[in-house]
Nucleic acid binder design. Structure first.
Lengths: 159, 159
DNA sequence: GGGAACTCCTACCGCGTTGGTAGGATTGGG
DNA sequence: CCCAATCCTACCAACGCGGTAGGAGTTCCC
């Protein structure tokens, strides 16, 4: 499982916010029911999104959440970063700071550079690129065109 | 942690095999000592590589393991697949079979397609591409050029 | 032939994280 | 004032991961 359910639920939450929200805030309860997710758990997840300033909240009755930016400007890398804390970490690069150098705890452990570090860096790059190139609005649009030309036929999974 | 230590250790093992192995088999003990990894755990890991026909073994005294193919032809996607069982799975696509269609357990749960599925598929694609474009020989070469022009200066981590 | 040096196999275990719940405090609207 | 919300924190069961233990089977060397 490359991402935990935090990312899964968090993205679903944002998508739902983009679908339902037109100005007025949407309550978590509405989202939980629409997506079939546990409300109490969603509360903790949306707190992460709020801390990252991806959503805004209004308290009290008729309160709820809304996106704090246009969905076109929200890329998935910031979303996942906010939700998971780090995008695709490896034990190898714990505190790489900001320098682009390939520093590694294994470095010159035995007189040669750490090979896996090279690999994980590439993989992480691939993940981040894929995330950064996907915007929330894209996901909303995808979820909105409700499977065209697909009647109750349903080549279903549960079958 | 995107990959577990199985992948980390397994790749390190293969690299070490490529460095030390010149025809004759290398014992796990030698690799464990060279990399500072627990021998008993490595045994289980190398079993996965053997099942995937990435290494061959000879039993008995002076036995050990060797690569069953040239390192140039070994790409990291098969390695990680052998070690982890699956490359970047999400709960979403459990048994997608082989059809390229975007099938999802959430599909038409509520009349619209599952948006996260689109995202996870992209991410997984990015990971696999990064892995498939890296060969074992590349990692071996990287580990062999022992950090040029870097004396005992060591801007160390443990400091 | 008897160790010694290996590969091989399987059962077991502590520990951290994940997913989820409980219960309450706070805030605002009708 | 009551209800519907957000907020906050402590708690818990289950699972997977990293690692160990202990043995059984193979092969070489003396």
């Amino acid at each position: 499982m490359i991402f935990t359910t935090k990312a899964e639920y968090g993205v679903r939450l944002l998508v739902e916010l983009g679908r339902q929200g037109s100005g007025h805030p949407v309550s978590l309860k509405a989202i939980a029911e629409a997506e079939g997710l546990p409300l109490a758990y969603l509360e903790r997840i949306v707190a992460l999104l709020k801390k990252a300033a991806l959503v805004e909240s209004t308290r009290g009755a008729h309160g709820g959440y809304r996106l704090s930016r246009a969905p076109e400007s929200i890329t998935m890398d910031e979303v996942v970063l906010a939700l998971e804390g780090a995008v695709a970490p490896m034990s190898c690069f714990v505190d790489d700071s900001e320098e682009g150098r390939v520093l590694c705890s294994h470095v010159d452990d035995h007189g040669h550079a750490c090979a896996t570090k090279l690999l994980w860096t590439r993989v992480q790059g691939g993940v981040i690129k894929a995330l950064a190139h996907t915007t929330l609005s894209e996901l909303i649009a995808f979820s909105e065109r409700a499977l065209p030309a697909m009647p109750a036929k349903a080549p279903a999974v549960v079958a």
